[in-house]
Design a protein around this nucleic acid. Structure first.
Lengths: 121, 121
DNA sequence: TTATATACATAAGATTTCTATGTATTAATT
DNA sequence: AATTAATACATAGAAATCTTATGTATATAA
């Protein structure tokens, strides 16, 4: 019988703000690191944000599959220590898409800062 | 007969990134301006972001109703030029919630910048 | 031997947002 | 005079995304 030991498998209080930013984060990390597999992405994000953002598997894997279906990512399956790994990397299309996404992110951050701190604008 | 003249009533290419930030934006604007009505909020955001972010009515009005139901906002209905206006302002609870939200927003922006620009971290 | 870490997956439900439509008044344009 | 645009609210259906929960499987640490 399978027993699920639910310790730290999920994010707990991820701010609503992160909604909509998952694919941008994934694409940026892949641009930076060449290729990564799903689990590695979750760990990397946790590390970068000092544990503040925990990407859930239920969000990540479907997102990766969608990006692959859209031709943004391509996958290489490997076997490491008898364990399956699916390495993802940006396609050519994905690379140019990432440039757009990062520009959008910069604009977004600028706009949010304008709203939060209208004096500086 | 009613004819809908659909010019500029909706946002067009709002980045996915804005998903999840609507209530934070609304709360911050109300903290800043004391009280505002829905239409005013849409115009203010358009102005602040120089037309880049256009809040849709289909998103805003349900969000305002929900925040009111949660006790974050309270409403004062007024009649101006034969037109209905519903002014919203933060409740006491809403004011303290806003402080939390803005802290979360700062963290979020910091984390997103860490991801985009890992060298500076 | 039990739990944790690694590594994938999907389905149900909740939530949010977009698109489209609806009503109504006033102001501007043609 | 008639039409369009602007002001001001509203809601319903669909789409998209994310959370929660569950499932399978191997390797390692306690």
């Amino acid at each position: 019988m399978y027993i699920c030991s639910d310790v730290n498998r999920f994010s707990m209080k991820n701010s609503q703000l992160y909604k909509g930013s998952l694919t941008t984060i994934v694409m940026k990390l892949l641009e930076e690191n060449g290729r990564m597999y799903g689990y590695e992405i979750t760990q990397k994000v946790k590390e970068i944000t000092k544990g503040e953002l925990k990407i859930t598997e239920g969000a990540l894997y479907p997102a990766l599959h969608k990006l692959e279906a859209e031709g943004v990512l391509e996958v290489e399956i490997e076997n490491v220590d008898n364990r399956l790994r699916k390495y993802y990397k940006l396609t050519e299309k994905g690379t140019s898409e990432t440039i757009n996404r990062l520009a959008e992110l910069e604009e977004f951050i600028k706009n949010m800062q304008s709203i939060v701190n209208p004096k500086l604008t």
